[in-house]
């Protein structure tokens, strides 16, 4: 039947199929009550605002340190949740489809296996996007409220101490910069891209894995080892200078060639510390993440295409 369909429509058919499978995956994951973790995040974000944890700051800072603390806790929780969801949700999908026999129903139709994989991955990415959006909104709201409180306290403190206007303005500007803003969105984008790469790796593992547990454990291991990829690469590039053995150098090369460089996405720490990721740099990070996602999805397809189901 496809032979009678014009080529342009067939290409459109790919997109429609991928979107349909993605929507199905998203619904399937939502029904698994994945979003319940958002309640936990809400507790973390709100608790980081209202718990008066001991700080060493003097009265002149009037609670400004808590803003860094909220960002640190919130972005940390977003990173952990997004990585765990990316790995666990992707690891669940193929085994669940086999268990429900959905996979046979889908592949019995003229659905290319790459469409199936891309659709499932897109569904997970959609889930990650919606989850991060919700967490981002909550973090921004909490920060907004707390920043307003801190600014008010600082104005009162400066008035009581008779600070000159330039000193007051400098303090308030610093506090505003520590509050919610676009630089923070750069960090959230980096969290999303890293989670997307993790989802594509979990997809690759799940194509040859024997169980969900195996995929999850190996996926999380890859996540941590991926943070050493840059070290392995440097070890290879500088190899021989300290008399390292050939086997060690080859192992480091293999690590550097196969695993993604997750350290690239550690710009989150710099944003929490007050740096701003330039838009061009953020664009390059997104492109880097895109390269990894495409690469690991294609690798998944090569394995899945040969798999007997």
């Amino acid at each position: 039947m496809n032979a009678h369909v014009p080529a342009g429509t067939r290409r459109g058919g790919h997109v429609v199929r991928i979107l349909t499978i993605a929507a199905h995956a998203f619904t399937q994951l939502a029904r698994m009550k994945v979003f319940h973790f958002l309640a936990l995040f809400a507790v973390v974000a709100i608790a980081s605002n209202f718990l008066n944890l001991p700080q060493h700051e003097g009265p002149e800072s009037a609670g400004a340190a808590v803003l860094r603390s909220i960002k640190s806790w919130s972005l940390g929780a977003m990173t952990l949740f997004s990585v765990v969801i990316a790995v666990a949700a992707t690891a669940l999908l193929i085994p669940k489809d086999i268990e429900d026999r959905t996979l046979y129903t889908i592949l019995a139709k003229p659905v290319p296996r790459i469409d199936y994989l891309a659709g499932r991955l897109l569904g997970v990415l959609l889930l990650l996007f919606v989850s991060l959006l919700a967490m981002d909104l909550l973090m921004t709201a909490v920060l907004q409220v707390r920043t307003a409180i801190v600014l008010g306290e600082q104005r009162d403190m400066a008035a009581a101490l008779g600070w000159p206007p330039d000193a007051v303005e400098s303090l308030l500007a610093e506090t505003r910069a520590a509050g919610p803003g676009w630089p923070l969105q750069g960090a959230v984008a980096a969290v999303f891209v890293r989670a997307a790469v993790m989802a594509s790796i979990a997809l690759l593992i799940s194509t040859f894995s024997t169980s969900t547990l195996f995929t999850t454990v190996v996926g999380l291991l890859v996540y941590f080892i991926g943070h050493f990829q840059a070290d392995a690469r440097d070890f290879w590039l500088q190899g021989g200078e300290a008399g390292e053995g050939a086997a060690a150098r080859l192992a480091s090369l293999a690590l550097a060639l196969v695993l993604p460089d997750f350290q690239l996405f550690n710009v989150i720490d710099a944003v929490i510390e007050g740096s701003v990721v330039p838009l061009a740099t953020l664009g390059r990070l997104v492109l880097a993440g895109g390269y990894y996602v495409v690469l690991f999805t294609l690798a998944s397809w090569f394995i899945f295409a040969e798999k007997e189901i």
Partner: peptide
């Protein structure tokens, strides 16, 4: 794992 500031906190 990219959470240095969290550990610092």
């Amino acid at each position: 794992g990219g959470l240095r500031t969290l550990v610092a906190t």
